[in-house]
Nucleic acid binder design. Sequence first.
DNA 1: GTATGATTAAAACAAGTGTTTGATTTAGGT
DNA 2: ACCTAAATCAAACACTTGTTTTAATCATAC
Lengths: 233, 233
Amino acid sequence: MRDTVSRHPAPETRDRILDAAEALFVEHGFEATSMRMITGLAEANIAAVNYHFGTKDALIQEVFRRRLTDLNRQRLAALDIAEAEAAGAPLKPSRIVHAFFGTSLEMAADTANGGHTFMRLLGRTYTEPNGFVRQFLAEEYAEVVERFLAALYRALPDVPREEILWRFHFMMGAMSYAIAGTDALQLFAGSFDDADPERLMPRLMSFLLGGLRAPLPGTENGNDDGGLARRRQ
Amino acid sequence: MRDTVSRHPAPETRDRILDAAEALFVEHGFEATSMRMITGLAEANIAAVNYHFGTKDALIQEVFRRRLTDLNRQRLAALDIAEAEAAGAPLKPSRIVHAFFGTSLEMAADTANGGHTFMRLLGRTYTEPNGFVRQFLAEEYAEVVERFLAALYRALPDVPREEILWRFHFMMGAMSYAIAGTDALQLFAGSFDDADPERLMPRLMSFLLGGLRAPLPGTENGNDDGGLARRRQ
DNA sequence: GTATGATTAAAACAAGTGTTTGATTTAGGT
DNA sequence: ACCTAAATCAAACACTTGTTTTAATCATAC
């Protein structure tokens, strides 16, 4: 039967399909990746994917679920540790940012086990409109986002929550591009070689924190938006 | 003949196809959008797209070209003005950032003529691996990126060029998400209503400039990366 | 009005899509 | 040994894909 987990330790075909799908999705996108490409790379029969997952959409969902559950658990764990150390006091923004994006980049640094592949895929998917994938992401993210936003609200009590929300969103964008990384960078900088992932983490962190702690729009000091923020709130 | 511009002022069918394609691409992606969806929405015959553009790939390319040429011209014009005002002196980073991202957001603010639609599509495409589209983008962007990077290098002589390049990349990511905007934000913040595009510009500008001018990674003061940047360069 | 070239139209093309079927193999429990 | 359920397989399903073909229409110039 097609119910996912059986008594037996689950043969390897299922996992080979997931790995192949993940790799092909990030390279060609969901729609451009056919079942035959997947089963071909996984060296499985074409019917295997329907047998193990039911439909292509269910396969896509499972590709996300298996990694995202882990990732979000790590994120929450990192936040737990930080909050435990703070012993009730509001966290420093940098700790929060690091708990979230640090774990993300750690997974992205894992090129051997496909973590990097997956994070690229994830970054793209936020802005993609794959109806059911978005819905699924929203559910999978609900708790994590709630916890981290709450932490940021406490850490930055003077900043309007709306603003924090947007900046968190911007940070996600920067991270997404950071992970897409060199491939995308070469797009507008032909001669570019330094892709040292060791340096990516501090690079991104500096940028994110700089953005998060930037003076609020509408503030007159140091903002200098070129005269475009005439409208004050 | 299928040569693009004829003697006659070009009938409207061609443009209807481009508009329809643009709208559908941003909603479903390139591969998931079929010719029949396009010609259906454009109220044209299925053969019309091959007649006017040759192939689907050529159509995709033209969807980008017609807007990107304009956008990049505006970006360069904005930079020209800024440099003229500076009269040879290095520009302020904020002016450069504003010349680039301000024009981008202006196009994104145009919801009536499809500018918003296109900018969302563009933001996604940077990180997408559509072989020939990426190649095309690289060519189309070459001059603009060269000019803006050169301006930033002059404006921030103390910052390693490598670092500037990365931060420019991060800024592109933040902008991409900013434009993807509310749709993506609702993904992890269900109750969210403020999508006022008037406020987006100053919001993003503050964040971008904060990130661009953040202390360099490895710098000991104010960095606070949570202790992960042990490795010093 | 007729010739000319650009555009549109309907129909078909081969190839590829996700999914299903039914038979066959594999493995484990009693 | 037999039985049973899980897993794999080859083949076919109905349908959609991008593209091409051939004929019909349209507008304009002479």
